[in-house]
Design a protein around this nucleic acid. Sequence first.
RNA 1: GGUCGCUUAGCUCAGUUGGUUAGAGCACUGCAUUCACAUUGCAGGGGUCGGUGGUUCGAGUCCACCAGCGACCACCA
Length: 886
Amino acid sequence: MKPQDIPKAYDPQEWETKLYQKWEESGFFNPDTCIEKGVTKADAEAFSILMPPPNVTGVLHLGHAMENSIMDVTARYHRMRGDRTLFLPGADHAAVATQSRVEKNLVASGMMHPRQELGREGLLEKIRTFADESKDTIKKQIRAMGSSCDWSRFAYTFDDARVLAVNTMFKKMYDDGLIYKGYRVVNWSVAGQSTCSDDELEHIERPATLYTFRYAKDFPIAVATTRPETKLGDTAVAVHPDDPRYRDLIGQTFEVEVGAAKPLSIKIIGDEEVDPTFGTGAVGVTPAHSQTDFDIRQRHPEIGLVAVIGIDGAMTTEAGPAYAGFSVLEAREKFVTYLRENDLLEKEEDITQNVGTSDRFGDVVEVIPMEQWFVAVNKEIPGRRKSLKDLMREAVTTGLDGDPKQRVDIAPERFEKIYLHWIDHLRDWCISRQIWWGHRIPVWYKKPTTDNEQLTTGGEGEIEIYCGVKAPEGEGWEQDPDTLDTWFSSGLWTFSTLNREDDFANFHPISFMQMGYEIVFFWMARMILMTTYALDTIPFKTVYIHGILRDKDGRKFSKSLGNGIDPIDIGREYGTDALRLALLSDITPGNDSRFSTEKMETSRNFVNKIWNISRYVATMSTASDDSLVPKSLSDRFILGKLATVIDDTTGHLTENRFSLAIETLRTFTLDDFADWYIEIHKVEKNDAVLRHVFGTLLRLWHPFLPFVTDAINETRGNSTSLMVTPWPGDSNDVDTDAETAFGELRSLVTKIRNLRATYHIDPTQRLTGTLTTKGVDFSVSYPAIERLARIDIVTSFDGSSAELIISDRLSASVSLDGVIDIDAERARLGKELTEAEKYAKSLEAKLGNPSFTDRAPETVVMQTRATLDETNAKAAELRGHLSSIS
RNA sequence: GGUCGCUUAGCUCAGUUGGUUAGAGCACUGCAUUCACAUUGCAGGGGUCGGUGGUUCGAGUCCACCAGCGACCACCA
């Protein structure tokens, strides 16, 4: 493009779609193509990033945009470094989330009971359609964000390859006895008519009443509860074995009539877990409706189990004729009334308690005993003398089998602790769900030909069970109706996605994973569990955990608040590059960050700035390819500084310090390059250096700002995307001498400008000044100084002047005849002198302290001494100037 | 109740292993339309780094305790 044809402002819409299409067509998103086309060496190191598959429940939000920015920056950086880089995209069928969303939609459009009205296949068809549409939307959005992922490897958690992986894994665990079907209490969502795992519960605080009562007048112990209605299913009272109040009662059984179907048979048991200091020191045990109480029964199998709440959320016939069929709340009221009327209620207290609610269906979850499928996390894995829990621990601590190379690195570190703590409290994982959208459990049953209808517990002696990857041969087999927890399939994601030939060998373990902290237990833990168990390797090397993106006021983005923002809209308004920049600026791992339109404006302005720098480079420099020779101090400075910036940026990106990389590049671009080097270039005109620095800068920015950098790259006549240009190396050395000297030059210019501002000197008026230098020759930079400070440097002049002491080797006198106010100038110098003296004093004190000079490293002492000398020299000069003015 | 995090300029936040006089963006004040850019530039004001102790020659950075805020976990019935 001809320089004069480049528009004054960058228009993202002009470029983004076009560029993405070009990238995609180039094939460079695919690591294999990169090798074929020679941009990556075949034996280059592999680098893999696996996209956490977004749920096909609708559209992506800004949080996804942030994740994609993190991943794409990383992918582009490694691709440019020459790594065989795979960034693998995908989508998640998100079992319960998607089904509940579609059911809600159907209800909203007038259907009362979607499951009954449509039937299994009918509802699944609706969900499938919804999921497919959603998947298409998501793909479009990911493209719009500029993500350089390999679409040819796109994976879906519910496609054929993944079904095969899930079934294979299920069978392996089943055969190893790690998956079992058992009758245990589970979390049951009445609204969703399905189980949910412990991790899917959202605990909410709410007021409750704590009732203290006796089962009967002659019952020796009072117990407390917030769920009186469940007490109809009590089978024991647990006390601490050493509690003198109750010790003698342990072992006795009481028959009490409370109105249940049968009199309750309550056995007094001793259990160490009971806190004798809390309440009455005794716990009414309801094994059927409390996880804790069920656990107590595991330790005391002799006590009974009576279910008084059914899967419909209503009281069962076991609860007795007065309660059966009533809701738990109605039953609670009735039972409390009964207690009150019979004078059994001893105390009522208002307390707040935490109740588990279903995060998808929103209702309070009941604990109910049922036969379900579980993964045994504490059981020894055949032949490995370890449990799944052990493997999960090893993977983040010692490394698998003590091999430090087989260790997952979690950033920030503190999540290790949180994760380990979670493992300690982990129970067997209930994996069966009664919803329909999901991987069907690969277990088939065959009823005996005899007329035995017992399909529930205990009848298995009569029923043949088959577990396999595919349905068994023969007639009469019926598949288990349940589906699997969605995290079962997500847990396989690091390897189930690598099903193409050699992909597993090349790209597993995944090099870099990122995820929000809210998903660590669900997902990270399950991936570690599945992979370490099935493949005896870790699923990924590094996992970067980010915080939640919040709105301007620190609130979470949510549908109910109506503060959701579509990243596509933002991208359209401000540009995708600006969005990526805004999302990655000022973030630190594990901490939440805020999004605001102010940030978007800043970022957009910055992107436009780069665009205009490119216009300057295009219009003001000749297109020759001069050899790169620094001709001046500013040349040496900018090249040296560039080397530092390359080093720092590389280090930051390697260590996933995205914000620091941005800050480094931003400061260099705006401050060093645009405000200083380019302004000086207008005088010195060393085009080769200008073009070299800018070209390098474009490559450094490319991972963050892929669109604008490639757009500029095209206007410069390059047809190959920066995506496959090499990451800048260290062709120049860091030049500290030049940096120091240039720093002095800068200070001088700034001071002169400061003078102009202080004395309100007309900006167009040129000043006159003399320069005194020692030990360093600034003369080559005189034209630059003259331009930047709007001053004419002369050898001498008469009259009043301002004295500027920059350092012990650079000072200046600036003629201020006619504008200077002697008193003001004296005050200004006096202030400067006071500051210098104060500083020198503090340094002297430090150096006078023998413990400092003795113990601090020599370099620090030497540095301090040098600074003191400089400060003293400066103060002396200031004193001289002050006296000459008076 | 347990665990973890946060507290730095008016606002939002950086500050990588303790080492020159603590930084950025936005906001604010003054000046400027000088031909890459007003989606701009120049200059400037503004912080005893939540509090109290401690370790150290040296602490925003490490330790202890305290306060406020937030998150997560949890079987106080």
